[in-house]
Design a binder for these strands. Structure first.
Lengths: 126, 126
DNA sequence: GTACTTGTACGAGCAGAGTCGAACATAGCA
DNA sequence: TGCTATGTTCGACTCTGCTCGTACAAGTAC
């Protein structure tokens, strides 16, 4: 079957607005390890999270509940932390909310092509 | 530090010579799943195996002992089977030996860019 | 035949990941 | 003050994966 071509949204790197909370602890770009990143992406739920962030990031980042995932909160905490500690996403604390976005620039720098693989993925076709 | 550029060997797709043993059971190309492949590649030892196969495949394929991995035989069986069942490598039985090579064409078709990520990887830099 | 080599199969031990419920912390608001 | 919403932390359970030793199977060479 033909795969619906997913166009990657244009990345407009905007300077951080003043008052942006600092990111939660995360590996620096030079600390990213391919095997760790691949391990973080080897889960369908996390693949869904990252892909949704990549395709629908009209706002800067999104809180946890925005994803509409039918899992307990503690499970989501687990998966978002796995993605953050692997260096795939960056999380910031906005009051009560913890918002996430993909570290596209860092991933493109260290592992070019990886982000496009996630975008091309679909839960059904693998 | 600057990363040593790894050039990808030219792939000469040769027709199978007569008398080639059939491949061991493996997923068809349309059955490949990104999360499974990423999971198979999220192990440093398996990443080493695949990368070495990609960079030094002067012969068609290689037996298990060619890799010079300092692990018990049963461990190697485990990892090679994981790679084969994920669809990353193809294995054929030549008498006593079981030789492996990477399914480059299939991976390039389904997950373009993934093979290059493995080639660019190095055990130290991640 | 025997010995050697290549590799599998099986099982045990161990560690880590995924799942979830329950309790807790905090910000905002009435 | 109390309620609600967001999300964490903890512990427990289960499941899988990694590691390895041992035993076994099948070609190859003598």
């Amino acid at each position: 079957m033909p795969v619906t071509a997913q166009t990657r949204p244009a990345v407009t790197v905007m300077p951080e607005p003043p008052g942006t909370p600092p990111p939660l602890p995360e590996p620096a770009i030079e600390e990213l390890r391919l095997e760790t990143v691949l391990g973080a992406l080897s889960d369908p739920l996390r693949l869904r999270i990252v892909r949704k962030l990549l395709l629908e990031r009209e706002a800067f980042d999104h809180p946890c509940g925005w994803f509409g995932l039918d899992r307990p909160k503690s499970s989501l905490t687990h998966h978002f932390r796995a993605l953050r500690e692997a260096g795939v996403i960056r999380q910031r604390q906005y009051g009560l909310e913890r918002r996430s976005h993909v570290r596209v620039e860092d991933l493109d720098t260290r592992f070019p092509g990886l982000v496009d693989l996630v975008i091309a993925w679909s839960p059904e076709s693998g």
